[in-house]
Design a binder for these strands. Sequence first.
DNA 1: CGGCCATCCTGCACGC
DNA 2: TGCGTGCAGGATGGCC
Length: 268
Amino acid sequence: MPELPEVETVVRGLQNTVVGESIIDLEVPWEKALVADDPYESIVGKSITGIRRRAKYIIIDLDQGALLVHLRMTGKLTPVAPEKHVTVMLHFETGNTLYFQDTRKFGRMEYVNNPMEKLAHLGPEPLADDFTPEVFYKMLRSKNRQIKPLLLDQTFLAGLGNIYVDEALFQAGIQPLSIAASIPKRQSMSLHAAIQSILSASIKAQGTTILNFSHGENESGTYQAALQVYGRKDEPCLVCETPITKITVGQRGTHFCSSCQSLFKAKR
DNA sequence: CGGCCATCCTGCACGC
DNA sequence: TGCGTGCAGGATGGCC
């Protein structure tokens, strides 16, 4: 499940591979994966001038417009031909090809004229300089919502997914059902620090690779070894040995330690 | 506004 | 062994 660190890893990996390539043809085995009024007209003939990340989106800049890629759960962008589940292929003048592969077919590649305009609804980047502990505390204070779904809301904060939210809340000692506005300053500071340190550490480890259904995976991250609660239902908490609890919060599997994480209830 | 549900897809873990 | 069922999950849109 690609979250911010995984997307960052993909972007860094493709930096030296696709920038400078000219697109001379495209194939779309799964039509829904490519969103554009006239795909051939808008994409073929253009060159890739850069590749960058915003939240969980990959922005492939073209000499006019850009391709916005969201991998969702199982998407991959690779220059190496996958065996199956290829949804889009970009063929380059050099003879190289960029493959969009996606087992569950939820991922999308969209041609847009102005990528930043299209992503204007997103909240702040959790690793940006102006996302300070003070700013975060103020953001939380105005929200009467459960902290877990709030952190997953990309318009509130952009880039976190289910795995890293569970990990950050554990590290900060905050129970996932806690109401954001009720979280004290001390714990809010701690959550901010947890989000930044976990994301940074995961980027350094090239992301998390949950044992999945892709065979020849040659670029897997190693952060899964550092997970404290995610996927550890009924296993002992690494701090206090209380079995890890798994519940559903906002339709998402949610892992936490009932002893280490405090519930901050709504004020009245 | 906030919470809940369905939708999109496939593969895998289950129970029998 | 093989079948059926349920589940996982990011984002969106609809409903109350």
